[in-house]
Design a protein around this nucleic acid. Structure first.
Length: 345
DNA sequence: CATTCGTGAAGACGAAT
DNA sequence: ATTCGATTTCACGAATG
């Protein structure tokens, strides 16, 4: 569970849970034949139903929005077998290939014993031959500049992803993205760090779990300029279709951060902020504006209406958006003719 | 005093040339 | 590759409570 305990004020802990749009069509529970895992299907907080939020790969409560699980994994085979022979035929042995490992976990090793398949010792000629093969095999694994490259990059992606707390599937996609870059010889002239960070950034955005450039910069070893250039390059070369980040995706995290700063923001405010963001999207006022700025201003505006006023400066500190920009977006929201936006709360 | 608001210069970016 | 337009950021000061 990604539910953070608030040790200071237990009474307000529900205010830190992430809420989700509840109007989604109810997901059909897929019946699996081998139900080995005992899944929680009732919310520990309010005993509401748990549903799958496929967009984010999360399981969360319908009623209070408590996020139960962030890893949406289908354990169990993707095939079905109706009798023993079919089961044998379809079964595969070995660990699944893993994008997080530079050789996908499929390395071949030649053991050190100079014995043949029957356990007999090898002659000296054969022994030399095997030594040579061993050496070449060892080289083959790391010799390639690409592979060493990949090793380091995947390590970096993993490190940054952990620091940012993005789910595992995002890392996997970032990894395979990097692999594609490598296959296309896109690396020469570019830093590994920059490309790795760019991949992770792209992957996070594609999975609707965006992290801002500023957040990325804090965990990366290269500066914003470098990896954002790498990102654009990747996007173009790989033909990724990435729509601008949705401001609403930043909302829960910003609210949680504000609460950590000791600035209480109620669920009501968050809800209203989300409402404003919807309105902005309806009226297509978001084009060209930074999503984080819109999110920050939405919180600010909602806060005023709910008599909770995070100051522009704290908001700026938490969101990484300047006060000036918050003001600009705030004026967009509070503009004349938008009074009816409040209807719905 | 803290906070908000407004301004001009400067940087970065996407699109167009 | 350069230019242009929109946007954000920075630094500052004024107004407001």
């Amino acid at each position: 569970m990604s539910f953070k305990q608030n040790t200071k004020k237990p009474a307000s802990k529900t205010s830190r849970t992430r809420t989700r749009n509840r109007s989604r069509a109810p997901n059909k529970e897929k019946q699996t034949d081998n139900e080995t895992e005992t899944e929680i299907d009732e919310c520990p907080e309010c005993t509401g139903n748990i549903t799958l939020d496929e967009k984010h790969g999360e399981r969360c409560c319908e009623d209070c929005g408590l996020v139960i699980d962030t890893e949406n994994i289908d354990r169990g085979p993707e095939w079905r077998a109706f009798n023993a022979s079919e089961s044998d035929k379809k079964s595969r042995v070995g660990s699944p290939t893993n994008e997080l490992m530079h050789d996908k976990g499929l390395a071949t090793n030649i053991d050190w014993k100079n014995k043949d398949a029957y356990g007999r010792s090898l002659g000296s000629k054969q022994r030399q031959r095997m030594n040579r093969l061993r050496k070449m095999n060892r080289w083959g694994k790391t010799k390639d500049a690409k592979d060493r490259n990949l090793r380091q990059a995947l390590g970096e992606i993993d490190r940054m992803a952990s620091a940012l707390g993005v789910p595992r599937n995002v890392r996997k996609i970032a990894s395979s993205m990097y692999r594609q870059c490598l296959d296309k010889d896109m690396l020469p002239g570019r830093s590994i760090e920059g490309m790795a960070t760019g991949c992770l950034y792209a992957s996070a955005r594609m999975n609707n779990i965006p992290r801002s450039l500023d957040e990325m910069e804090q965990v990366s070893r290269v500066d914003k300029k470098e990896f954002s250039r790498a990102y654009r390059y990747i996007q173009k070369e790989l033909g990724l279709e990435i729509s601008p980040a949705d401001p609403a995706e930043y909302l829960p995290r910003f609210v949680a951060k504000l609460n950590d700063e000791g600035c209480e923001v109620s669920q009501e405010t968050e809800r209203l902020a989300k409402h404003f963001i919807e309105k902005i999207k309806e009226n297509e006022m978001q084009s060209g504006k930074t999503p984080t700025g819109i999110a920050a201003a939405a919180i600010y505006t909602a806060g005023i209406l709910c008599n909770e006023t995070p100051t522009q400066s704290t908001l700026s500190k938490v969101t990484g958006v300047t006060e000036v920009t918050i003001r600009e977006r705030y004026q967009d929201i509070a503009e004349d003719g938008h009074e009816d936006w409040i209807h719905g709360a």
